[in-house]
Design a binder for these strands. Structure first.
Length: 117
DNA sequence: AGGGTGATTGTTGGC
DNA sequence: GCCAACAATCACCCT
């Protein structure tokens, strides 16, 4: 039942251990990237507060503290962050839309082929 | 129609 | 430049 909450999929740590010897994994050549998550906006706003209250807090502290606060916040508190996330999502959406469109446009022409190998 | 997978996002701080 | 916990996400593609 691989569908936990944390530490499960996104574990690039173990993946990075694999390290491609030469075959560079390329899902999408110009991957339009995804969108940010509420956490990103939340952290941007809280990071200063966290450090303000924990100037000694390094990464782990801030990370855990941040997440703890995040869950402490109410939906209304996260709402503004979620809204931003939603905004970014729409942005990423258009990104892919255009990416898909431009991709289909150059499809066949074989021009925009970024081969860095 | 449903499943789950992976990829991505941002913070800090040291080497 | 990269990596690490912390969290969300959710678009992506396949069977």
């Amino acid at each position: 039942m691989p569908k936990e909450t944390t530490k499960s999929t996104k574990r690039k740590a173990a993946d990075k251990a694999e390290k491609a010897p030469k075959a560079k994994a390329k899902k999408d050549p110009k991957a339009p990237k995804r969108a940010l998550s509420a956490y990103m906006f939340f952290s941007q706003d809280w990071r200063e507060r966290i450090k303000a209250e924990n100037p000694d807090a390094g990464f782990g502290e801030i990370g855990k503290l941040l997440g703890a606060k995040w869950k402490e916040l109410d939906e209304s508190e996260k709402k503004p962050y979620i809204e931003q996330a939603a905004r970014d999502k729409a942005r990423a959406e258009k990104e892919k839309t255009d990416y898909d469109g431009q991709k289909a446009d150059s499809a066949g022409s074989g021009d925009g082929d970024d081969d860095d190998e």
